[in-house]
Simulated assay, not measured.
Amino acid sequence: MMCRVAAVLSLVALVACNEEEVFTVEYYLENHIKRAERLATCEVQDNAEADANCVNARQAQTQVATTERKNDWLDQIEAETPAPVE
């Protein structure tokens, strides 16, 4: 009986040690290299949709892409808007 309890406790300890830190969307927004690395890992990872870091990295990437598209759009409008006549 004690061996079983020890085995279960050892297994729980090993699982707890293998848990990696979960980073926020803000972290991935500020750290584009870590975001790119995580997104590459998520591409080949099983159950990536359930991994908090994959979800947060994807949300950060979506925010970055949306901001870039918005800025491109605003730049295009500014370039096409005629200068005011005085």
Results as ranks from 00 to 15, higher is better:
residue 34 K to S: 06
residue 63 Q to V: 02
residue 85 V to C: 04
residue 33 I to L: 06
residue 28 Y to S: 09
residue 17 C to N: 02
residue 36 A to T: 09
residue 65 A to Y: 06
residue 47 N to L: 14
residue 62 T to Y: 13
residue 32 H to N: 04
residue 25 V to L: 09
residue 78 E to Y: 06
residue 66 T to C: 03
residue 1 M to T: 08
residue 29 L to Q: 13
residue 78 E to A: 10
residue 55 V to L: 13
residue 31 N to R: 10
residue 83 A to C: 08
residue 54 C to L: 06
residue 15 V to M: 07
residue 19 E to T: 03
residue 5 V to R: 09
residue 37 E to M: 05
residue 37 E to Y: 06
residue 42 C to K: 01
residue 6 A to V: 10
residue 1 M to E: 10
residue 15 V to Q: 12
residue 42 C to A: 03
residue 15 V to C: 07
residue 15 V to A: 09
residue 52 A to L: 10
residue 3 C to A: 09
residue 58 R to K: 11
residue 68 E to P: 00
residue 50 A to Y: 10
residue 17 C to Y: 02
residue 44 V to D: 12
residue 48 A to P: 09
residue 68 E to K: 06
residue 86 E to Q: 11
residue 12 V to E: 12
residue 36 A to M: 05
residue 44 V to A: 12
residue 60 A to T: 05
residue 78 E to V: 04
residue 60 A to E: 05
residue 84 P to V: 05
residue 78 E to S: 08
residue 61 Q to H: 06
residue 32 H to T: 08
residue 50 A to E: 14
residue 84 P to D: 11
residue 18 N to K: 12
residue 22 V to T: 15
residue 74 L to F: 13
residue 76 Q to W: 09
residue 37 E to H: 07
residue 26 E to I: 01
residue 48 A to Y: 12
residue 34 K to G: 01
residue 33 I to P: 00
residue 65 A to C: 04
residue 17 C to Q: 05
residue 39 L to P: 00
residue 52 A to T: 12
residue 69 R to T: 04
residue 50 A to H: 11
residue 77 I to E: 12
residue 19 E to C: 01
residue 48 A to T: 12
residue 55 V to E: 14
residue 1 M to C: 05
residue 23 F to C: 00
residue 72 D to N: 15
residue 5 V to F: 01
residue 83 A to Y: 13
residue 66 T to M: 08
residue 50 A to M: 12
residue 6 A to L: 15
residue 75 D to L: 11
residue 85 V to L: 11
residue 77 I to C: 07
residue 57 A to H: 00
residue 74 L to A: 12
residue 55 V to Q: 15
residue 24 T to Y: 00
residue 86 E to T: 06
residue 51 D to Y: 01
residue 46 D to N: 15
residue 38 R to M: 13
residue 26 E to N: 10
residue 55 V to F: 11
residue 15 V to R: 11
residue 53 N to R: 09
residue 67 T to K: 15
residue 2 M to W: 10
residue 68 E to I: 07
residue 51 D to L: 04
residue 32 H to I: 03
residue 43 E to R: 15
residue 4 R to T: 07
residue 54 C to A: 07
residue 75 D to G: 09
residue 85 V to R: 14
residue 13 A to G: 03
residue 50 A to R: 14
residue 9 L to T: 04
residue 7 A to R: 15
residue 84 P to N: 11
residue 83 A to N: 14
residue 47 N to C: 11
residue 77 I to D: 06
residue 80 E to G: 14
residue 34 K to V: 00
residue 32 H to W: 01
residue 33 I to G: 00
residue 8 V to W: 04
residue 70 K to E: 12
residue 43 E to V: 09
residue 52 A to C: 09
residue 21 E to A: 03
residue 71 N to F: 04
residue 14 L to D: 01
residue 2 M to I: 09
residue 42 C to E: 04
residue 53 N to I: 03
residue 34 K to N: 06
residue 27 Y to K: 07
residue 64 V to N: 05
residue 63 Q to I: 02
residue 60 A to L: 03
residue 2 M to G: 13
residue 70 K to Q: 12
residue 22 V to I: 12
residue 40 A to S: 14
residue 24 T to D: 02
residue 85 V to W: 08
residue 70 K to P: 01
residue 83 A to H: 14
residue 2 M to T: 13
residue 5 V to P: 00
residue 38 R to F: 02
residue 58 R to H: 03
residue 21 E to K: 14
residue 22 V to W: 09
residue 71 N to C: 03
residue 82 P to F: 00
residue 59 Q to R: 14
residue 74 L to Q: 14
